[in-house]
Simulated assay, not measured.
Amino acid sequence: MNVLNNTDINPQPSDAPLALNGLSESTRNAAEAFIAAGTAANTVRSYRSALAYWAAWLQLRYGRTLGDGALPAEVAVQFIVDHLARPGADGSWSQLLPAQLDAALVAAGVKGKRGVLAFNTVNHRLAVLAKWHRLNEWENPCAASAVKTLLREARKAQARQGVVLRKKTAVVLEPLQAMLATCTDGVRGVRDRALLLLAWSGGGRRRSEVIGLQIEDLRQLDADTWLYALGATKTDTGGVRREKPLQGPAAQALNAWLDAAPAFSGPLFRRLYKGGKVGTTGLCADQVARIVKRRAALAGLAGDWAAHSLRSGFVTEAGRQGVPLGEVMAMTEHRSVSTVMGYFQAGSLLGSRASSLLTATSPLGPAPGHSTETPTQGNPEKPDS
């Protein structure tokens, strides 16, 4: 039986055959919607911010609208020299971007303040421009050898002049204990203690992963052991749920939080209101960073603290304690060995004999007037905010 001959096919205009060499507007919009839905909210915001800056800078610098077509490599080169500080003959540092354009970018609200940008910021905006070109199926100007060479040499020049890439301070065991010691302020302290210990002991979780956890993601094995399930993350976008353990003090802190704020569904970590009332709305990513900074301040800890301090601190401490790299990466879900090794090596070298040749056990002994005891961290009383 020939089905085609017995089927009345009367295609409507909207059902007309598609062109083989291009995408319809509806298909392109659907593809872009998939990409947006599969991208973390923080990443989407950073992309939008970077593209807004590119649009403003292009309009001011070239009188051109972003999206008119592919940009040549020369534009990427100009962007680098406009925004990165470069050393002059007299030892001063400057940028090529004219002062009036710099002021206009600030006035437009796409730039926080006048002056040069950090290397990481320039690098990120070039990466966003590259992705913009790939999505539009245009030739990528950032892939040109001239751009890559300039960026590499600019980084080296800054490094030689003492301009280093700053990293957030890692929360290793001692500062973590100091932060936890401040968690005595009622329900807020119970919540913050559970959050800090889950994010740290649970594998150095990213802030997006912490705020994404739901009550339904938890499974208790016994009084001192919980399992929590991760879905799609920055490095594992497949959505397959992977369970991670939470044991000992971290499990006990979670028990205390669930007792203080019982719930059967919804966000695990929720906002608090006046009088210690627990709301139903989950924390946002910025609030995780504020909790880390607040607890560090209450503990009197000096450093540049952020939510990422918990992740880098977990890896660094694992290196200090000699945990095999494979076990660490199984918990953190890092996919790049080079990324995790920077923190892991720093931690492991702290316990290396090669880094402690001049110790109290060395024939040379400590330097005159130098104590080998580690000073304890203070915990001054500071007002709650």
Score class of each variant (00 low, 15 high):
C183P: 08
N140Q: 03
G162V: 00
Q100M: 10
A146Q: 14
L135F: 07
Q100W: 08
A146H: 11
G186Y: 12
G88Q: 13
A118H: 10
D90L: 11
A170V: 05
G115K: 04
T182I: 11
K156L: 14
L135S: 09
L176Q: 00
D68H: 14
G186M: 11
P72R: 00
V128W: 04
V172S: 12
S145H: 13
L51E: 01
A99G: 11
V81Y: 11
A85P: 12
T149K: 09
V122M: 09
V106H: 04
V77C: 15
K168F: 05
S145E: 14
V110H: 00
F79K: 02
K148M: 12
A178K: 03
A76W: 05
A146K: 14
Y62M: 15
L96F: 12
P98W: 12
N136C: 12
A143V: 13
D90S: 01
A170H: 06
A143S: 13
Y62L: 15
R114D: 07
A104K: 04
D68G: 13
C142Q: 00
A50D: 03
T149G: 02
V81E: 12
H124K: 12
N120C: 05
A89Y: 06
P72C: 07
L180Y: 04
R86V: 08
E174L: 05
D68L: 14
A50S: 09
Q158N: 05
E153D: 03
A52I: 01
E139S: 08
R64D: 08
T184L: 13
T149C: 03
V147S: 00
H124N: 03
R155N: 06
R125L: 04
A50W: 06
G91W: 06
P141D: 03
Q161A: 15
L129C: 13
T169Q: 11
A89G: 11
L151I: 07
L97A: 05
N136V: 13
V171S: 08
R125M: 05
V81I: 12
R152P: 02
L165S: 11
M179C: 15
P72V: 12
G115N: 05
L117G: 03
W93T: 10
A108R: 15
L126F: 08
T182F: 04
D185W: 01
N123W: 00
R64E: 14
A104P: 01
P98M: 02
A154V: 09
K148H: 05
L165Q: 15
A50T: 01
A52H: 09
G67Y: 00
A108Y: 03
E137Y: 12
L84C: 01
C142N: 05
Q78I: 00
D82P: 00
R86A: 13
A89W: 10
E139N: 06
K156R: 12
R125K: 12
C183Y: 07
L97P: 00
A76Y: 08
Y53M: 11
L51H: 00
H133K: 07
V75E: 08
R166C: 07
V122N: 07
W93D: 02
R64M: 14
R166Q: 15
E137A: 15
A143K: 13
L105M: 13
Q177A: 03
L117N: 14
G91Q: 10
R160N: 04
L129Q: 06
G162K: 14
W54T: 13
T149H: 09
A118R: 03
R86P: 02
P175S: 06
I80S: 04
E174G: 08
L165N: 09
R61V: 05
G69R: 14
W57C: 06
T121C: 10
T184N: 06
L101P: 01
V106N: 01
L151C: 06
